[in-house]
């Protein structure tokens, strides 16, 4: 359950994001109001191309909203969001560094000495189950192992907000489950606010406290927010078998289905 607190970790206040010219540009998202409390795990689902990642980029400070405000712990966000960690969908590790170097380098901006950073990095790689792979370069690791390194790289900085953009998208179903459980286990240790973007509704329900559904683009907006009252700790594979899970799934799918169909129809007409 989300920690109750007066301040929110992330607030998007009537955010709109337009690419290209102000007039006639492509409006990805519009009228977005979303608040994540500290310690709350929010999953954002929506059809392909609905601007889910755009919201994460705005929360990260990688993208400035054309309209509206992003607030981080009550303060307006300017520049990059230094209190957030970002797990990208694509491979974002530095290919010229070993797993250990990739994780250790994340502490350099905080002024941690190299020796101490490497000690901590080893510990984190052990925690994500890669103790035996510290000296491997990214190309020598499997897709799932690279995600584990990226997870360790993000978490070693101890960010207060975790932004995840379909992080397990490219992985196979079994690896996704394992990674999901690993994420929940690490998250449970000291709960951060999480914005987790996915197009997989089951994954969203299994992981999150709250599922936010977005409409099809352009000018995508939030069409529903659904609390997930499933007890924790959860096991990704087992929680799917519970009746409550099916109930929630059915409820959310009812609102998501028309949007997915809309996006699909648009894709048939003209793929971007």
């Amino acid at each position: 359950m989300p920690a109750s607190s007066t301040t929110s970790a992330v607030s998007l206040l009537s955010v709109a994001i337009t690419f290209g010219p102000k007039v006639g540009g492509y409006t990805a998202v519009k009228n977005i109001d979303l608040t994540a409390a500290p310690g709350e795990f929010i999953a954002i689902v929506g059809p392909t191309g609905c601007g889910k990642s755009t919201l994460l980029n705005a929360s990260a400070g990688l993208l400035k909203p054309s309209h509206g405000e992003v607030e981080i712990f009550g303060a307006p966000l300017e520049g990059l969001n230094s209190r957030a960690g970002y797990l990208f969908q694509q491979d974002a590790l530095m290919p010229w560094k070993t797993a250990l170097q990739n994780v250790a380098v994340a502490l350099e901006p905080q002024g941690v000495s190299r020796r101490e950073a490497e000690l901590k990095a080893r510990e984190w790689l052990r925690r994500v189950g890669l103790a035996a792979f510290v000296d491997r370069y990214p190309h020598m690791l499997s897709g799932g192992q690279r995600k584990r390194v990226a997870l360790a790289q993000m978490l070693i900085r101890n960010p207060e907000i975790l932004l995840m953009d379909e992080p397990f998208g490219p992985l196979d179903a079994q690896t996704r489950q394992i990674m999901g459980n690993l994420l929940l286990e690490l998250w449970a240790a000291d709960r951060k606010a999480v914005l987790f973007v996915t197009h997989d509704l089951e994954e969203a329900i299994a992981l999150a406290d709250r599922v936010v559904v977005m409409s099809a683009g352009p000018a995508s907006h939030i069409i529903g927010e659904f609390p997930v009252p499933l007890p924790r700790p959860r096991d990704i594979a087992e929680v799917r078998l519970e009746p409550a899970f099916h109930h929630i799934h059915k409820e959310i799918w009812a609102s998501l289905r028309t949007e997915v169909q809309k996006a699909y129809a648009q894709g048939e007409e003209a793929s971007p």
């Binding site: 990260a60 230094s82 960690g85 970002y86 990208f88 694509q90 530095m94 290919p95």
Partner: peptide
């Protein structure tokens, strides 16, 4: 992506 990731790490 590598660049954005490095920047998010605070470099």
């Amino acid at each position: 992506v590598v660049l954005a990731n490095a920047r998010m790490l605070g470099m």
